[in-house]
Design a binder for these strands. Sequence first.
DNA 1: CGGCGCTTTGAACTAGTTCAAAGCAAGTGG
DNA 2: CCACTTGCTTTGAACTAGTTCAAAGCGCCG
Lengths: 256, 256
Amino acid sequence: MAHDGTHFVAQLREACATCGVRGLCLPSGLNRHELRALGEVLRDRRPLPAGATLFHAGSRFESLHLVRAGCLVSVMPSADGESQVLGFHLPGDIVGLDGLGTHVHGCSAVALERSRVCEIPLHSIHELACRVPSMRETFDRIIGQRIQTEHEHIAMMGKRLAKQRLAVFLLDFSERARRLHRDPQLFRLSMSRSDIASYLGLALETVSRLFSRFQELGLIEVERRLVRLIDVAGLRAIAEGEAVPELRPGMQAEKH
Amino acid sequence: MAHDGTHFVAQLREACATCGVRGLCLPSGLNRHELRALGEVLRDRRPLPAGATLFHAGSRFESLHLVRAGCLVSVMPSADGESQVLGFHLPGDIVGLDGLGTHVHGCSAVALERSRVCEIPLHSIHELACRVPSMRETFDRIIGQRIQTEHEHIAMMGKRLAKQRLAVFLLDFSERARRLHRDPQLFRLSMSRSDIASYLGLALETVSRLFSRFQELGLIEVERRLVRLIDVAGLRAIAEGEAVPELRPGMQAEKH
DNA sequence: CGGCGCTTTGAACTAGTTCAAAGCAAGTGG
DNA sequence: CCACTTGCTTTGAACTAGTTCAAAGCGCCG
């Protein structure tokens, strides 16, 4: 890859400033020298149009990918045709970690909207990790946080009511938006109801109904994929499983 | 830790031979020299009696642990008192990876029976990974395989019938037993019905009933925690979601 | 023996699914 | 500019897989 000295570093720093993820993204906390080393490793990639596949399940694993812009979904195909959504990836997230073991991707990654990713060739990761101590810590953080995330996903799918799951999902997105310096109350979901349902382990109708119920309760305002969180504390209460006043169809939020 | 040269290496090699895990366990595929290096890093630990906690959720993370003998469960506590079982760990498995990110354990690890583990201090892992190339690959394999495992767990909990989940669980245990050079058809589960239920995202009564149904169908023989797989192909069919003849209480396996 | 913890089993119940149909936004082509 | 298609979303109504509640059974250890 062509890299023309300090210009590239400046460019990377700029790109990462825009990216705006603290702590999770690779270059955070690196000094000028370390950034340079990283710059030699990152390969820029053409933007992915919505619907494009970054890699397929079963394909050979060669690189990790760092999401720069947009949103990807990772999907595990299953024998019976029903595929499982494993996660949604926003800027700063790393995708492809499951290939580290077998060098074969266990799931597919698909762009939900026009997106950009950085490619990080596997062979250069370890070299960099050994050469730059802070990079090693960063990789550890990425791995650890990812496993933690998977654990939370499992905890959410085991023995939680549908309304708790959706509340957790919305609060999670809000928190991620906040970390990306976006509005944590107002965001546009780039995935379909069906994707959300699969991610949460529910039927898509259940998800759709819950969006409506949450709106009736005055917890959110929703119009198709545009969501505004109105009562975050209320959502949190539902997520925690605290008994909520009423959540039956046909009830109005206001009681006079 | 005391290490007296070649004797230690021999000891380690011996221990790992008994351990018998291929591919997954750290020392597999290492030469004499590399084994020596690893020996300097592994710290032996006192055996854990059944019920003992290796580490608590929230406690400071300092080391990974390699299960040498027995069986551990990792459990994530949740706000509402209900805790979630994340996994069962047999010899060769690494526990504690979720602490890599924050340096704080996100879940607890508890021995389900008398067990032994090797402690691998974090600070020496990276050093070793840089010094011994094949160690690096081994660590990658461990990480990748773990994420893959978590993904399968998620896929199992989303949109799968209870009978599919239990069938998957039994087949998974059978496969792991096989890899440990144990009898893949006959094994003793060291966890309670309640642990299994939490792991599968079901009520414990459902799990208990399914064990009975599977027995009635002639798929397994079960007496409390002792399980014998009779019809592996049948279990596989159920796991895959293929329509099974009958699975109703009160029906006999034999039809005359 | 007696008590304790785990497991099994039954019966009533319900949260969520499934099936079905209508609504709605956005694009396409005449 | 409108008729028509397509894909996603919403909503309703019937249904069911699994839960919950309750009680009995069983093995084990002091």
